[in-house]
Write a protein that binds this DNA or RNA. Sequence first.
DNA 1: TAGGCCATCTGGTCCT
DNA 2: AGGACCAGATGGCCTA
Length: 330
Amino acid sequence: MTKTYVKPKEMSELVNTPSWVDKGLNSQSEMKEEERRPAAYGVLGSLAEEHDSIEEEDEEEEDGEKPKRRGPKKKKMTKARLERFRARRVKANARERTRMHGLNDALDNLRRVMPCYSKTQKLSKIETLRLARNYIWALSEVLETGQTPEGKGFVEMLCKGLSQPTSNLVAGCLQLGPQAVLLEKHEEKSICDSAISVHNFNYQSPGLPSPPYGHMETHLIHLKPPVFKSLGEPSFGSHPPDCSPPLYEGPLTPPLSISGNFSLKQDGSPDLDKSYGFIPHYPSANLSSGHVHSTPFQAGTPRYDVPIDMSYDSYPHPGIGTQLNAIFTD
DNA sequence: TAGGCCATCTGGTCCT
DNA sequence: AGGACCAGATGGCCTA
């Protein structure tokens, strides 16, 4: 289930005021015992406790009843040392946040080059990674065979292992008609025409609003995944040299929206802030007759179901697959 | 209300 | 000593 994620709180609020700060405490160790969480017990609390335990241990050693503890004796936790640990922990937390933000930014960039992208309807992290894996796979199939991707098969490949909602979403994205604003990219198209021949691909569904932004053809042309370079093109050797996708350095423009229905800015570029939410308009069994899912859905909201094969064994290219296969299998 | 997804905190490990 | 990375724990938000 994709959804619009809303941050629980303002980041600055979380950064500046952890829960124990909210309570007017100096550290989590000062929280009441029942309010403490095991994981949040914290170095500060455990250090304070450690300090106590060391003193107790010393007392016991004096009694001579307990064997001496091996290893270096822990330093006594002075107030200054506690302060240093506290400051270090705060810094580490900030670094960790920054690190995770960087990771999320990278995931966002990945979302932007996925077949369905919208600022308002974000794929989850795991679904983004799974779709990316499938997408690489599907594109490698197109490049390797040099054949027109059969629409149904292409979408099914993209949807391997994805959740039903995400599968529907991808299917909805890719069943767009041939009218495409981005067909202006004729030069790029001509370069790799022999390798990427998708002219016959047409998933147009009756009743689907004409998307101003992309269908499968433009999307494939648009993509210049750096991964092909980094892989050394082992499985693309049959392709003309000029067909190897250049390293992508341009802006990360979304090839397709979730609904294929972006608003356009004055310059013709898609206005990502005003993209519409995904609305499935399509009757079930439209894409793959005989693969209609029995998953219940609300009356009046027909779904565009894609059969989901949760196994990765049937992927076409074991070469690239062996590298990818181990990554996202559950 | 349960489950999914997320951000954050935390402690451990490895490396410089 | 300190930074990067990782995984576990936890609570908040949202949806079915």
